[in-house]
Design a protein around this nucleic acid. Structure first.
Lengths: 191, 191, 191, 191
DNA sequence: GATGAATGAGTATTCATTCAT
DNA sequence: GATGAATGAATACTCATTCAT
């Protein structure tokens, strides 16, 4: 069985350029960004684009995955900080806020996911995020700060429904409304 | 002064058929549903569709307004019940659930609103809903059941971000997560 | 054989309103004026319009004929004046100018004729015009003012090619360029 | 500095086929010729047509420009002949005839120009034609054959109003009627 | 006779995808 | 592998004409 030969250097470079351009164009014009426009932004011909991503769905999927990559990184960072002393529940709160901010700027990504019915499943980065978040949850529950029935799926549910396309003030308000559902401490003095 | 003659019976029937078809098609394929497809689903020629709704935007707008109509009706009903003795906070809880269920079936409507940057403002039904909800809020706050800083906008924010396209179990879970942000009673015994 | 019953008074009135509206709309928007627009301008429903003119071609044809009516009237007036002493050649010159001006304001009419390949033929008003012009030609030739080979067809050729859609100065210049082809007196001192 | 790579051979061929088809279809059905029809006539898919001419206006513009190209070439040829001894006025006469014949076959072009309110200005070929004609005019005026007030604009006015859609005999007659407006020699012996 | 709602073929244009160079 | 020209189904919308009321 022949070894898959390693990809050519320029092919790798092209893949990166295409992903960057796709991210940019999708962010700019939503998932309706044209393939030609993406190719042009990448400084590449459409044919090349199609060699790397046989379908628009594939390309958008890749962008979404990239996004997941970032989520995973953030989750693991939060987990690491919690492991070295910071409060797990604080990390959770911060994490959700961070993801919301990131989505607000990469805004189209979520739309993309929706519109294209992107894979439900289990990409590698999603697994990493899930693992890190699960640990974080367990820790926060051990601290008595997080409701015992909260799961990773709950996080994903909230993140998916976050108002990413609203102005910052609205996004902040949404966080305020939503966090008491997780925390055991309610909303404090406000009411 | 002559009365504007009443619309013809068959024209009215067609308008209904078109709206129904639009609702259905938009639910099925999102606001990208084609005008031809909608016309076909309505058993009508495109021309007829365009006679009733000169623009796709108009048609989608009409569907959204229909939806708002229902929301307004629900809100006023809730308000009426609270006025005659039932607990305001219970009505609020039920109301949000009701809207969520309704939206789940009319699912596309939300997408529609988004995509078309639907009117920000002030359609007549929206005004009615807003008025009824405001009264409900005041009552619940007087009872000490609702956080004092909660406004109608908060309701709209939650409703807009509700996971209308998720299965019932997920929708129920979302309600559980989100209601504590409104109520002064937290999540009770769960954590 | 039954006598064709005389048209009802209101039907006659409608026909006039429609023709007026057609003239107006065609002048305004060219022969592309929509049937609905014409009907609306006439204060009549499309159905009524179609009862009077079974086809758009018919309607435009009618407008063109109306135009011919005017041409015929002008030609006969010119002829009458020449018969009572004025110079035939002067009347000819004036006549062409008059028609050109009229066409410039009813501009679309010519376009209409072209676009719709309107009947070449021999409507009654055209016949009257032709007769009057023929007399005028004979008279001017008898005066020695008009080239002997000029015919009514030449007039029609010039009129048809007149730059009706150009500004007045250009129209005047065109007359200057074209009249020497008819007159025996050339262009006088200009060259 | 890299040369812009030469267009592909088949693309060039297609461009020609499209232009030819456009000329033909526009000639046949006026500028209302459908883009689909033109594409079909060219043996090409619409998409291809749109790659070459992003807009119908562009396509018709190109056809008009082609026409102008020919006019320019004719004008320059006439000028060259006059420079090497032939009579300028004869060249002018011949030139107008030539353009008229050319237009008769490309008939629609004029309609096209009209309909689209074609550029007022200054395409490159138009400039060339204008220059050559100006020289020709000066020469003929120096010979005493052409009225002193005649300008290039007069030529364009006549050409634009020429009866390109009439049979040859009518076109010839039109020339006879119109040339005396330019020449200092009148119509000779005919009257 | 008048009304105006319904019809449906037709228009220019876009865009994901394929394939010859 | 890269290029970019070609494909063609699809889209929103128009308008002359028909026909039930």
């Amino acid at each position: 069985m022949a070894q898959a030969r390693p990809p050519r250097a320029d092919a790798v470079r092209n893949r990166q350029k295409i992903l960057a351009a796709a991210r940019e164009q999708i962010t700019l014009h939503g998932p309706d960004a044209g393939m030609d426009a993406i190719a042009a932004a990448a400084g590449v011909a459409v044919g090349t684009l199609y060699r790397h991503f046989p379908t628009k769905t594939d390309l958008v999927g890749a962008v979404v995955t990239e996004h997941m990559e970032r989520v995973a990184t953030d989750a693991e960072a939060a987990h690491a900080r919690a492991a070295s002393g910071s409060k797990a529940m604080d990390e959770i709160t911060a994490f959700i806020g961070t993801v919301l901010e990131a989505s607000a700027n990469d805004h189209a990504v979520k739309a993309a996911a929706h519109t294209l019915g992107a894979a439900p499943g289990t990409t590698e980065p999603e697994d990493r995020a899930t693992a890190a978040l699960a640990s974080l949850i367990t820790a926060a529950q051990a601290d008595g700060d997080l409701h015992l029935d909260v799961t990773v799926r709950d996080f994903y549910l909230l993140i998916t429904t976050a108002p990413t396309d609203q102005p910052p003030a609205v996004r902040a308000r949404w966080l305020t409304l939503v966090l008491p559902g997780l925390s055991t401490h309610g909303r404090g003095a406000a009411g």
